[in-house]
């Protein structure tokens, strides 16, 4: 990889979390400078097309740009040469909801074209809306990686049990229970990744008023793996 790093970078588009650009340039100068590393003859049209889509003024001076506009410049410079791999680190910071939505459409199109998109974000609802697979990274290591639907459907459930009477229940003796806590004197909530039959069997000896088993949002899956 080190040997071929130049060839790899030719096929890579990268949006860093902080958009640090050359302060002495105008937007169009910066984008042309960035595109010149890849050669090609259509970059001018592509720059104009992307700037139009993201509503970016190409004549502005870089130091005059807001955080959101700097982020747009950073996104465009990563997309101009139509890379095979896109790595985006917090790309939506500073973007208004309309532009965010256009960015997601743009990334979906890039993905359909054949590009792989690595999308890093702390806003998990964005990840959930856009990505097919998710990897949870802790201390620089991937601690869980799977399809989002698989994570939500099969592997982890959020269980809420409402008892008929007040009950002091510190734990349930079933494998696969995590994040167990008492919500009120009559209800408990926990994340469950074990055998659902065992859980039902264990609960059947207790008198319940209600039982809900849901797919947890990505935030709760994330917290589950982080704890």
């Amino acid at each position: 990889m080190v040997k071929d790093s130049k060839q790899i970078r030719r096929r890579l588009g990268y949006v860093p979390s902080d958009a640090n650009l050359y302060d002495t340039m105008r937007v169009n100068e910066f984008l042309r400078f960035g595109a010149a590393f890849y050669g090609g003859t259509h970059s001018e049209d592509r720059i104009r097309e992307l700037a139009g889509l993201l509503e970016l003024d190409l004549e502005r001076k870089i130091p005059e740009l807001s955080t959101g506009n700097k982020k747009k410049v950073s996104i465009i410079q990563a997309l101009v040469h139509q890379p095979d791999l896109l790595i985006l680190d917090e790309p939506t910071t500073g973007l208004d909801p309309l532009i965010q939505s256009r960015l997601f459409n743009l990334l979906t199109e890039e993905n359909k074209r054949g590009a792989t998109v690595f999308f890093s974000s702390h806003v998990l609802s964005e990840v959930q809306a856009l990505c097919r697979r998710v990897a949870i990274v802790k201390d620089g290591r991937i601690i869980k990686s799977d399809e989002i639907t698989a994570l939500r459907d099969r592997q982890l459930k959020k269980v809420r049990v409402l008892f008929s009477d007040e009950i002091v229940l510190r734990e349930l003796n079933v494998k696969g229970i995590a994040s167990f806590h008492t919500e009120s004197p009559k209800s408990i909530v926990f994340m469950f990744s074990g055998d659902i039959n065992e859980l039902i069997q264990s609960l059947s000896v207790l008198r319940l008023e209600n039982l809900s088993i849901e797919e947890p949002p990505l935030e709760e899956i994330f917290l589950h793996y982080y704890r």
């Binding site: 130049k6 970078r9 890579l12 990268y14 640090n20 650009l21 960035g34 590393f37 890849y38």
Partner: peptide
Amino acid sequence: YGKTAEFLMSRPVS
């Protein structure tokens, strides 16, 4: 120190 190295190093240039 201008933090533009991240941009430059992601270009196909050694």
